[in-house]
Computed example of a mutant assay.
Amino acid sequence: MPLDVTAKGVYVIAPTPFHPDGRLDEPSLDRMTDFYLGTAGADGMTILGVMGEAPKLDGAESLAVSRRIISRAGKAGIIVGVTAPGFAAMRALARGVMEAGAAGVMIAPPNHLRNDDAVVAYFHQAVEAIGSDIPWVLQDYPQLFQVQMTPTVIRRIVMDLPSCVMLKHEDWPGLEKITALRRFQAEGSMRPLSILCGNGGIFLDFEMARGADGAMTGYAFPDMLVDIVRLSREGKRDAAQDLFDAHLPMIRYELQPGVGLAVRKYVLMRRGIIASDAQRRPGAAMSATARDEVEYLLSRLGRHDARAKLPALG
């Protein structure tokens, strides 16, 4: 089903599995999809995002990966990142994945935008390029893209462009932004909008309390994120907080710039979800010391969450 403003829950940001020689690992892609949407209980997946190494794939590979995941996902919603330097490539991928059955696409602003009007104009042009019939997610990640979007700017984009149905909220600090956007809705000055949050889930406990609809991030224990969102919806805030607190050291470690993807892929490999923690070059690998630190964190986490009790390394 096409993505709309009622979307909620957890849409896992998926890495792209590779063999050590850089080839796409299709069996791991299938196993990862089955785990996220089956065992972990996620509502959907977001692919070809920042942590999906999208710039390292060519156009044909991007479309092939998307089609494979979409065909395996059943009724689960698949959102595809289509951010590109030019609108021709963005349009080609957006139209291609929607024809394959994607629920929607995600677009981030380029880092050269320096004022509010330029930001709003860019998204007008992006929608004109991909077509106003495609539902899309506005990615707000100023730490990476170096583009600041205030709540007022987001409201302008949402009100100008009805095909914008979701905000991927990754500002930091960003709790007051969620509050401001929900206040706009309550006042009637902004139409309803789904808000899913990123940043490895590091503020998910409070983001849910502020009115977020769920998470769109890629922590190596997405099944924990599903639990946090469920417990928050059920009003079991202390139970959600206890689980969050147990995972916080691992979340923090994985959130490190540069090496974070290597940590995430390593833990997913240790959990048996992907066969290799390989990244396509260029990529930041973990040192032996970092691996020891991750194993230490896993051993501590395993005292509180059985999902982290992993077989000993040989």
Rank of each mutant, 00 (worst) to 15 (best):
A92S: 15
G96R: 03
P142K: 01
Q148V: 15
M98H: 05
L193R: 09
Y122N: 00
E187P: 02
E176F: 10
P151T: 10
H169D: 08
I154M: 13
L93H: 03
V147D: 07
A129I: 03
P192E: 03
I134L: 08
Y141W: 14
T152Y: 13
Q143K: 12
F145N: 13
G96I: 05
L138A: 06
A88D: 12
E128P: 11
V105H: 04
A102W: 02
A89T: 10
Q146V: 14
L144I: 15
A121R: 13
D116C: 14
V127G: 15
A129N: 03
L193P: 05
M106V: 07
A100I: 11
A92L: 12
L113H: 06
V120I: 11
D171K: 08
P173T: 02
P142W: 03
G101S: 04
T152D: 15
V147I: 04
N115L: 07
V97S: 00
T150Y: 11
K177G: 09
V120G: 08
M90E: 01
V158W: 01
V105K: 06
F184V: 10
A108D: 11
H169T: 04
G104N: 04
M190E: 06
G131W: 04
F184T: 11
L193S: 04
I178P: 01
I130H: 07
L144T: 14
V153W: 02
M106C: 12
R191M: 06
G131P: 05
V165I: 09
L144W: 13
Q143R: 14
L113N: 04
V137W: 05
A121K: 10
V153M: 08
L193Y: 00
I107S: 07
E187Q: 14
I130T: 08
A103D: 03
M166F: 07
V165D: 06
V165N: 05
V158C: 07
H169S: 02
V147F: 01
I130D: 10
R182G: 03
A89Y: 09
V127W: 07
P110C: 10
E170P: 01
C164S: 11
D133I: 09
R155H: 10
K168A: 08
I134H: 04
V147H: 10
A102N: 01
E128Q: 14
E170L: 00
I157N: 03
V147T: 06
H169W: 04
D117S: 14
D117I: 11
A92E: 14
A186M: 10
I107C: 08
R95W: 02
A180I: 01
I130P: 08
F123W: 00
K177L: 12
Y122Q: 00
F145Q: 14
R182N: 02
G96N: 00
F184S: 12
H169N: 07
A88R: 15
D116Y: 02
S189D: 10
F145H: 14
L161G: 03
E99H: 11
M190Q: 07
M90T: 05
V120H: 03
V120R: 05
D171E: 15
D160A: 08
A103P: 05
F145S: 15
